[in-house]
Nucleic acid binder design. Structure first.
Lengths: 167, 167
DNA sequence: GTGCCATGCTTCGAATTCGGAGTAATTTAG
DNA sequence: CTAAATTACTCCGAATTCGAAGCATGGCAC
C-alpha cells in the first residue's frame, strides 16, 4: 500500500476542487446551450468541431477518440447518431480497410456554424468574462503545461508496447 | 438572437480547451482509481467526502445536490446505492419531515480514509506535479474567481423564486 | 382551521455511457 | 506465403444519468 501519502494542503485542494467544479459547471451550461440551440450533445459538437477544423474535413475514428476523451464504443454510438442525422458520413478508409473515415457534411458544417455563436457566448460569459487578459494567458499556459505532462505520462493509458526491454 | 458573436482568439480557445481536456483527463483517472481501490464512483466519493467534512457528518439531500453538480434524481439513485452499501444512512429530517437527512456511517468514513491516499496520489501525479508552487497558487486564484462569478450569476440555474405572480 | 402554492424527495422511462466480446484487416516472424 | 499477434471498429448487456411527473409536507393567506 501507500506508505506515506501526505495529504494535500489547502492551496492544492482549492485548486483541484475549483478546477473540477468550474469545468463541470461550464460543461453543463454548454451542454444545455448546445442542446437547446441545435440538438447537439457536447461530444457531438466536439466531434463536428474537430472535423470542421481538419483540412479535409475527415478523420479516422481513432483520431477522433484520441482527441475527445471518450470510449471507443461511445464514439461509435455518437457517430451513428451523427451519421443518421446527416451531419457526417462514414466509409472505410482507402488506406486501411479496417479503419473508418469520418467526414463532415455541408449540413454538419452548417450545424456547427449555427451553434457556434451561442456556444462562444456561453464560454465567454462563464469562463472568460471574469478573467483579465493576463489571467487568461496564465490559465492557458498552466493548463497547457498540465496537459502536455498528461500526454507524456498517462497513468492509465500507458501501454508499454514492448514489455520486455527497458522498464 | 446573437447579432454579432466575435469568435474567440487563440488564447481564449486554448484556455477553454485545455481546461476541458485536463479536467476530463483528471476526472477519468480519478474515477478509475476510485473504482479499483474502493468500488466508488466519483460522485459517490464526492458525497462521502462532503459528508465526512461536515461537522455532524450529516446533510440534507438538497445541500448535497448543491455541492455536487448533479441532478436530484441522480443523487437519489447514488444515495440509494450508498445506503445499501452501508456507507450512509437516510432518515427523515427532524426539522422538516419532507427533508431527508443523510449521515455518513463509520464504515463510510473508513471507506473514505481507505481510498483517499490513492486519490491524492492520482491528483498529485496528474495535476500537481507539473506545477510550481507559484503556478498552483495562480491556478487556484483564477479558478476560484471564475467559480465565484459563476455562483453569483448562474446562466441556467437562475431561479427567480418569485415567479412574477403568475403561476 | 382550511385551501393553495412552494419545497423536498422519489419514481419512472428514455437516452447515454462504458467495458468486454466479437469480427475483419494489417503487420510481423519464419 | 502462412500463422500469430496487433490494431480498428462495432455489437451487446449492465450501469448511470437526466427531466418530468408524482407524492407528501410546510408555509401563508384568509
Amino acid at each position: 500500500m501507500t506508505d506515506d501519502a501526505p495529504p494535500l494542503d489547502a492551496e492544492q485542494l482549492g485548486a483541484y476542487f475549483a478546477l473540477m467544479e468550474v469545468s463541470s459547471l461550464v460543461q453543463h451550461a454548454v451542454e444545455q446551450q448546445l442542446r437547446a440551440s441545435g440538438d447537439l450533445s457536447w461530444v457531438q459538437f466536439s466531434i463536428l468541431a474537430r472535423l470542421a477544423d481538419t483540412p479535409g474535413g475527415s478523420a479516422r475514428m481513432t483520431d477522433l477518440a484520441d482527441g475527445v476523451v471518450y470510449s471507443r464504443s461511445g464514439l461509435t454510438y455518437q457517430a451513428g447518431l451523427l451519421d443518421k442525422a446527416g451531419l457526417i458520413t462514414r466509409r472505410p478508409s482507402s488506406d486501411d480497410e479496417r479503419s473508418t473515415t469520418v467526414t463532415i457534411t455541408d449540413e454538419g458544417r452548417a450545424k456547427v456554424a449555427a451553434v457556434l455563436p451561442g456556444h462562444v457566448d456561453v464560454v465567454r460569459q462563464m469562463l472568460l468574462d471574469p478573467l483579465s487578459r493576463r489571467d487568461l494567458n496564465t490559465l492557458g499556459a498552466v493548463l497547457t503545461r498540465v496537459r502536455d505532462h498528461l500526454r507524456a505520462a498517462p497513468p492509465r493509458s500507458a501501454k508499454p508496447r514492448t514489455r520486455g526491454g527497458a522498464g
